[in-house]
Structures are given as structure tokens and as C-alpha cells.
Amino acid sequence: MHIPDGYLSPATCGLFGAIMIPIWRRASRAVKKTLSVRQVPYLAIGAAFSFVIMMFNVPIPGGSTGHAVGGVLVAILLGPWAACIAVTVALVIQALLFGDGGITAIGVNCFNMAFVLPFVGYYVYTLISSDSPSGSGRRVIAAGAGAYVGIGAAALCAGIEFGLQPILYHTANGQALYSPYGLNVAVPAMVLGHLLVFGWVEVIVTALVVKYLQKQNSVFFKGERS
């Protein structure tokens, strides 16, 4: 899901960077309103937590392993706006310090993983969980469904971004200048790959973590307050 530098044109990267600026601004305002000064370290530690989730390898049938992105889980725990900032911080650190995801593509990656993924997932979660009690099984199912739909939506966005490149940016003889596959290849490749394999890892991690936090009687579902 992390798009490296060079896969997308500078215009695409610039456009998504411009789209993300008002989103980050809105997120900062929303977080200032909902989190007190006391909770500044909470946001930083939440960002570190969203980075660390990717270090946990989850066993999947067949003996292989995968890791979750955790965007929807962070949105359920911190609220969608705080999750937007937390995941952005994690993506900035990954791109700048570890070369995971491009620097020029930071706007696009943040749009997919720090905006679409947590927001779509979070609203699916709130829609399904509705006003069910915090310890109910419905919330576990809602968390899993949110994670699945969230990662599917983010993968769809990434597929469209890749697929538009050869249509918009090519030489006179039709040679693609950036990502070479059109929408007919890029969208199914991204969406099916994520819905058939990675989406399930996301579902398992998000649903089980919510279940364990319920068991421990945690009152950490901050998202419900914002």
C-alpha cells in the first residue's frame, strides 16, 4: 500500500499533497478540541503504536504470515481525526527515515492510509455498532467489518491513482512515463489483492484486539467520544 517515489507523476503527488493540507488542518483543530494538553504525549505514543502494529506478524493459514496496517484500529481507539494525525506521523517517519513509501508521494499515501482508510473504516464501525454496549460482540464484528471495508477503499484509491498514470502521462508513441498499467489492470490487482489476503489480516487483528480490550474492561474507545 505504501507508494514509493517514481510510481506517480509530480502533478498527481502535488494534487494529493494539496488535498491533504485542509484535511491535516481540520484534523489539528479537531484534535485540539477533543484532546487536552495532557494528551499530547498520548498522540505521539498513539502514532508510535500505529507504526509498531506493522511489526506484529500475524500467522495466516498455510504457514505464511502478514501484517496489518492498523489504521481502523487506531481510529476506533483514538477517533478518526486523531488517527489521521497519528497515521500521518507514522507515514512521515517511515518515508523520511526508512524509505518505506515515497517522500514526494507522502500526500498520496496519507490520503489513502491516513484519511480514506481510518475514516471509511471508522464510519462503517460506528454504523454497525450503533449504540450497542461497549462490551458487546456486535462491536467486535463492527470493528472487523470496518477494517475490511476501510482497507478495500484505500486499495481502490491506490488502484485508481496507479491506473490513471498511463492515461494522463505518456509519450507521443504511447509509452507510459510512470506506473505502466491502466485502470483495467491496476484497480483489480490492488483491490483483489487486498480483499482476498491483506484485508483478512486486517479483520483478524482489528476484531481480536477490540475483543481483548473489551475483556480487559478497557475504557479506551476514544473514538466514540469525538
Binding site: R38, Q39, V40, P41, Y42, I45, G46, A48, F49, V52, I53, F56, N57, V58, P59, I60, P61, G63, L73, L77, I204, V205, L208, V209, K211, Y212, L213, Q216, S218, F220
Partner: peptide, 28 residues
């Protein structure tokens, strides 16, 4: 079994989250 493995991982992520929130209070 992979299902048991998934439980182990999920429990540890949940536990990490609990430690995270405790730590944020101490850091503040």
C-alpha cells in the same frame, strides 16, 4: 495452530495499547 497464533498476536497488540496509555500519563 494459526488461530492460536492470531490470538497470541492480538492479545499482545491489545496489551501494548494498554501499556501505551499508561506510559502517556507517566510521560506527561
Amino acid at each position: 495452530h494459526h488461530r492460536h497464533g492470531q490470538n497470541v498476536v492480538a492479545w499482545n497488540i491489545a496489551n501494548t495499547w494498554n501499556r501505551t496509555t499508561q506510559m502517556s500519563e507517566e510521560v506527561y
